[in-house]
Design a protein around this nucleic acid. Structure first.
Lengths: 152, 152
DNA sequence: CAAAGTAGTCAAGCTAGTTGACCAAGTAGG
DNA sequence: CCTACTTGGTCAACTAGCTTGACTACTTTG
């Protein structure tokens, strides 16, 4: 690979790890989750009690799409909605026990692949790779909003 | 960021560089291309004269979707279709001058961001990052088909 | 030369988003 | 405290970009 191919490398690496996680997750009984759900879980695990609008902003989708995503996750038992304590328009979204179980499994599977990759290139190089990506993101986020929008 | 977050890091880094390229490309007059087209271009630039079926396999989409994608690109003047020399069912897809122009611009813009990133972490660390991603992909492709499927 | 395989087409349908109009509830300024 | 504006969520209609399945025309294989 040459210079100019970094986008393809990043995209394919992402797909490789994501496909591995997604496949093993299905084998563990979580057959009804998409990658996009994973990023919603990730957000909710850090900001429990977020609103649908906030989730949408984080994922880079409209609030309507975010609500629809939460509807699905609620129907499948991954999240719960509770009334907002002070704002009667709003509802807080929290992970259910099954939701927590799923995200823990995702993290474990991700770690497994990361460990495998660390074995390929060395622990320190993987650590530096992670650091470098964080550096890029920090730099990029000063000029643009970096989202996790689930589609191209 | 901690262990277990590598998928998110890869996804966000990909989006960051892709959004930069896509935005600047639009400013250069290429307003009618999506990232998925870029990966089609990339493939065609290496395998000029591929068929729609081959393109579909590479992108991880059905042949019908691939044909539709090529239809669009042809209508917009990025690719041309010529009859296959020996197989009368088939048509060869090649990049038009405008198609080449676009892909060269994409590579140039990608290089620009890569240079900027190299400035942030050092040339050698970016090189190692690239090498490491190639290593991961080589390893992953022994067990799974790593595609560039444009959606989740 | 018949049977199986392959490139592309046609048509219908689906998923995951979009835009736009709307309501009820909250917030800020005079 | 009103009035004006903003905000969280809903409803409904629409769209992009795929999918599946059935088919035709041509090619390859045994």
């Amino acid at each position: 690979m040459l210079q100019g191919d970094l986008p393809a490398l990043l995209a394919m690496s992402f797909r490789a790890i994501m496909d591995q996680i997604h496949g093993q997750l299905a084998a563990d009984g979580f057959t009804d989750v998409r990658p996009a759900h994973g990023f919603a879980f990730h957000f909710l695990s850090h900001r429990s009690g977020a609103t649908a609008v906030e989730l949408g902003e984080h994922l880079g989708i409209t609030k309507q799409a975010a609500v629809q995503l939460v509807d699905e996750l609620e129907k499948r038992g991954y999240v719960e909605r509770t009334p907002h304590p002070t704002d009667r328009r709003s509802r807080l979204i929290t992970l259910s026990p099954r939701g927590w179980q799923c995200i823990e499994q995702v993290v474990a599977l991700s770690r497994k692949t990361e460990d495998h990759w660390a074995g390929l290139v060395g622990e320190d190089r993987l650590t530096k790779l992670r650091e470098d990506l964080v550096t890029f993101l920090g730099d990029a986020s000063r000029e643009q909003t970096v989202t996790l929008r689930p589609v191209w």
